[in-house]
Design a protein around this nucleic acid. Structure first.
Lengths: 236, 236
DNA sequence: GTCTATAGCCTGATAGAC
DNA sequence: GTCTATCAGGCTATAGAC
């Protein structure tokens, strides 16, 4: 693939969207050992892909992290690409199942507070998942183009519609619902994706429960107030 | 390097901090051609490193993007690592020179508005620079550990101190200055780092001036209001 | 299911002509 | 300074014994 010099066009990174039902190869029977191995491999792969990138992640290093011989990875997954896509599938699955709904009948402050806190919680409990998603998107999302243009876009559209209905019901002042969703996403995910930077600046070696609570409280208060809503922590 | 299975410890990615004065090899004389080539190489490298990761970025692809033969890259840079670190140096240099100061005498709303708008502007004009920094941090910042623990931490500490002084002067309500800086960083950089996602959801193929202005206005208004300040756009 | 051995490819880096 | 040719190393993936 050739590029003209110094252009600022996004490099199309060989878009290869995958079947989200990607499954490992080998015998399709269930089995405690099999399931256990698959879980270990997926966790290890997520960690190594984040730390080293797709190309930089060798099958050997993933096998080491999973505590299995290298050849066993190839027993479960045809090649590195299918393994990577399985990790992405797991990621999308987490995303799709974790989030509570927001509805037109809800109280905006309560609903947004719940959304923000859930996102913060996932950032602190599944930082690698958030990081892998971020790396994929930063690189041009070669494996998630279709997902983003279909499911994810619809997800945002539906939530934006609910927020818009709150505005029309005079439950909250006018604002741009899509930008508000971006603000909540970015500010909450920051604690996962930029964990290294946050810890360096706070001069800590790891997150603790207090840091998570402070982040959730700060973001909920600040964003709710930013939308013209009364923060839940405000005294009546 | 061995890891125990399923741990959630950050993988130490061979921390190799570099001399920020990293310079290309070859003749040290100035020269129009030389400077031109160096600029082309650095721009191309930034783009390819973002799209493919460090390992995935082949010297050949960087050479193609720069419009130069592969061997010429090796003429200017001893190896891929020094090239990568030169790109990071350029990034830190941009960061260090671009930002205006905030001072205890300033009006908080005006100062924060200026800070937010400058960050938004850089996100839209230098998306690759922001993306590369993000990828480096997500991967554990193997090349920026020292920078983050020294210069960057001091930068944050100084700004936090100014914000704290505003609070003590009753120019603004109490809030956590460091978390506020994280909020501004994350929400503004989101438009660069997650460009692919934002465009997919907005169903656009590229950013335009209007999108940038809407983002800057939204973030300035929402964050200022979130801090208990009157947004600059509010009518007197 | 597990593991060893190896084929085959790609890429970083160098040597040396021009 | 530029460019061609090439080598050495590391990696994925497969074949096949157990």
């Amino acid at each position: 693939m050739k590029s003209s010099p110094n252009n600022h066009i996004l490099i199309p990174p060989e878009p290869v969207d995958f079947d989200p039902t990607t499954t490992p190869t080998g015998t399709y029977k269930a089995g405690k050992k099999r399931d256990d191995n698959l879980a270990r491999i997926l966790d290890a792969a997520e960690e190594i892909f984040v730390a080293r990138g797709f190309k930089g992640a060798s099958i050997q290093s993933i096998a080491d992290a999973a505590g299995l011989p290298k050849a066993n990875i190839h027993y479960y997954y045809k090649n590195k690409t299918t393994l990577y896509q399985s990790v992405l599938s797991k990621l999308i699955n987490l995303w799709n199942t974790q989030f509570n709904e927001i509805k037109a009948e809800d109280d905006p402050a309560t609903a947004l507070d719940g959304f923000i806190r859930e996102k913060v919680r996932i950032s602190f409990t599944h930082p690698n998942t958030s990081k892998l998603f971020a790396m994929e998107v930063i690189s041009g999302a070669p494996n998630l183009q279709v997902y983003m243009r279909t499911d994810l876009r619809r997800w945002v559209k539906d939530r934006a519609h609910v927020i818009q209905s709150w505005i029309e019901q005079d439950k909250m002042p006018a604002t741009d619902p899509v930008q508000l969703i971006f603000l909540i996403w970015s500010s909450t995910q920051h604690y996962a994706d930029f964990e290294t930077q946050v810890l360096s600046i706070m001069n800590k070696s790891r997150y603790d429960a207090r840091t998570q609570k402070k982040a959730a409280d700060f973001l909920s208060d600040t964003i709710l107030r930013g939308c013209g809503l009364r923060p839940l922590s405000a005294k009546t």
